[in-house]
């Protein structure tokens, strides 16, 4: 344990030192190659050249990392998706045909669709409501910290917490799951919540909503505070009540931010894997695409072709949302 901490600390120090060294060193080299102190015209030319090269020099490491960890994997995934389980034998569109026809994939797609429908909507709505309410009360900041806290917990950690909420013991035993304890206290029979077909999907979604509400709240709270106070006062004078002011005056003014929050959560949802993997591993009809991808890629000997195909489908699904998200965020930054 201690050794790991030391290693981690050392890595951080060495990494940062290397980054500094790179920027300082490359800049120094540039100054030597194109000295600004040269005579007359050459000085201006040198400065201009150095200025043209410097951004690329500084961007270099980041571009390299992006190429290595993003562009290459995408290319490799595309290549793999046209090959067999071991990634050697060319199979043409066979993996894609399998994808279209497979019953498990269909079930995962339907579940994914449900997640997309429920989680971004619920998180954004709850985030908006909590942002509006916590802005009005004295202990709002404490409430905000509490609501935001799940953001700091990893998906797996959050799932473990919720496993205790949904935990099931036979009817004659003491219930240690919060939900079953509540149900039995109210006189109902205990249920194995995460095995209930269809509904178990929603029990999993609750976890992500729990995590993402804090994110939505923080961003939307900032947006709500940016609304000019006078427009609200004008609405008060115009006779609007609290709800009318909220939905007709405040929410429309922060649509751009709501769209950014919504799409950001949508992208997270498309990638959701940890929660399903840790809670059910796709059993009882709770599978989603990302978990299918992991299962095909790494479990039971692995089928790189099918795993890569699923990965590509997820990527293709994310891209349009991503583009829309970036556009919205840009528009928001430029003040529409």
């Amino acid at each position: 344990m201690l050794q790991q901490l030391v290693t981690a600390g050392l890595t951080i120090v060495v990494g940062i030192a290397a980054a500094f060294g790179y920027f300082y060193g490359s800049n120094w080299l540039l100054d030597i190659l194109f000295p600004a102190g040269a005579a007359g015209d050459r000085a201006t030319r040198n400065i201009r050249r150095a200025a043209a090269i410097r951004p690329w020099l500084f961007l270099g490491p980041a571009l390299l990392a992006l190429a290595l960890y993003l562009v290459y994997p995408v290319a490799e995934s595309i290549w793999l998706s046209f090959h067999g389980p071991a990634g050697r034998q060319f199979v043409g569109l066979k993996n894609y045909i399998w994808f279209i026809g497979d019953a498990n994939i269909h079930s995962a797609l339907i579940n994914n669709f449900l997640w997309l429908l429920v989680v971004p909507a619920a998180s954004t709505f709850l985030g908006l409501v909590t942002a509006a309410l916590t802005d009005r009360i004295g202990w709002g900041n404490i409430a905000k910290s509490l609501i935001f806290m799940p953001m700091a917990i990893s998906f797996v950690g959050a799932t473990v917490i919720w496993k205790f909420v949904y935990d099931y013991r036979a009817a004659n035993q003491d219930q240690i799951g919060l939900l079953n304890a509540l149900v039995t206290w109210l006189g109902g029979p205990p249920e194995a919540w995460i095995t209930l077909p269809f509904w178990n999907n929603f029990f999993l979604m609750v976890i992500l909503v729990w995590i993402q509400t804090g994110f939505a709240m923080v961003i939307l709270s900032a947006a709500l505070r940016g609304i000019p106070e006078e427009t609200i006062e004008a609405a008060v004078l115009d006779g609007a009540n609290g709800l009318q002011i909220f939905f007709k005056i405040m929410v429309p003014q922060i649509w751009g931010t709501i769209a950014v929050v919504w799409t950001t959560i949508t992208i997270t949802v498309l990638k959701v894997f940890d929660i399903v993997y840790a809670m059910t591993n796709g059993q009882w009809d709770t599978d989603v695409l990302a978990n299918q991808m992991y299962t095909w890629m790494f479990e039971g000997g692995g089928d790189f072709g099918r795993g890569a195909t699923i990965a590509l489908v997820i990527m293709i699904l994310v891209i349009p949302i991503m583009i829309w998200n970036i556009r919205n965020a840009k528009a928001e930054m430029e003040g529409r």
Binding site: E230, E233, A235, V236, L237, D238, G239, I249, P252, Q253
Partner: peptide, 27 residues
Amino acid sequence: AQRGIAMVFQSYALYPHMTVRDNMAFA
């Protein structure tokens, strides 16, 4: 709202998401 007054603000305080028509019609 029930005092029978209307106010014009220094910053105009128009509702930015509404057309001129809707701004005037809101009340």
